[in-house]
């Protein structure tokens, strides 16, 4: 067969369709040829570990895991039937009970120990039976020590973010950016990027960076896209969010 070919590679007397079929046949044959198979094995030997490293080992290596100083049961505290002080029709209002705004409009973020001790004040009469509460009262409330929480959502120093502008003016829900944190019973481990120093929540839990829910990542592109979507493109001026 090899000899029948002319220099142009075409088989004499045959149409273009047939020539294509022949080509495919030749390709298939090559693929199933032993040398190609061996090549494929080598290719795969490079590809698969690389994929495994990239998708599994790399994220595990990139992020350091730290556990919070103690657990906090958000779900429990958000339930008005259990914690009667926490009122509010919407989830956001209930969040704001502890994560409140100060008089000057700044956001308190993670509450200081004083907020906890408003309710958990008496070590003789704990409100619940958990070991966490015991730890809270004995270790922190009594000593007036702040709990060294690790913040999942802290933006880097170059970012200025006004919570009040988004909550009071933009009428966004807390969940839009923070997801269903309020439903968690256990605080997840805090993951810190070893290179950039960011919390993993900024990039998103998904290593692919792909986004399904609005809270999947909190990068500049996410902010900008949302501003654009809501018709506030003027807020994409650099100085609005950078300091």
């Amino acid at each position: 067969m090899e000899n029948q070919r002319d220099p142009s590679g075409k088989t004499p007397g045959q149409g273009p369709l047939l020539s294509l079929i022949n080509k495919i046949k030749a390709l298939v044959k090559t693929i199933f040829s032993s040398s190609f198979k061996i090549g494929l094995v080598y290719f795969a030997a490079g590809l698969v570990p690389a994929l495994i490293i990239g998708w599994l080992f790399f994220p595990a290596l990139l992020y350091s895991k730290q556990t919070q100083p103690m657990n906090f049961n958000h779900a429990l505290h958000m339930d008005p039937e259990i914690v009667s002080e926490i009122q509010g029709d919407t989830e956001t209002e209930r969040c704001l009970y502890c994560h409140s705004f100060r008089n000057d409009g700044t956001f308190t973020g993670i509450p200081e120990i004083g907020v906890c001790s408003e309710c958990h004040k008496d070590d003789d009469f704990p409100l619940g039976e958990s070991e966490e509460e015991e730890l809270l009262i004995n270790e922190y409330v009594t000593n007036k020590r702040e709990i060294p929480w690790l913040s999942y959502s802290r933006q880097p120093d170059c970012v200025y973010f006004s919570h009040i502008a988004h909550i009071e003016l933009g009428k966004l829900e807390c969940t839009t950016c923070h997801g269903n944190r309020g439903k968690n019973q256990v605080l997840p481990a805090y993951e810190k990027n070893r290179i950039s120093g960011y919390s993993r929540n900024i990039w998103g839990k998904k290593i692919s960076g792909l986004k399904k829910d609005t809270w999947d990542s909190m990068k500049m592109d996410d902010c900008a896209a949302c501003h654009k979507e809501k018709g506030h493109e003027e807020n994409n001026a650099c100085f609005t969010c950078h300091k």
């Binding site: 705004f101 000057d104 200025y160 502008a165 300091k243």
Partner: peptide
């Protein structure tokens, strides 16, 4: 930003 944040709070 500080002034705006204060104004929003009010």
């Amino acid at each position: 930003m500080r002034a705006k944040t204060k104004a929003y709070a009010e």
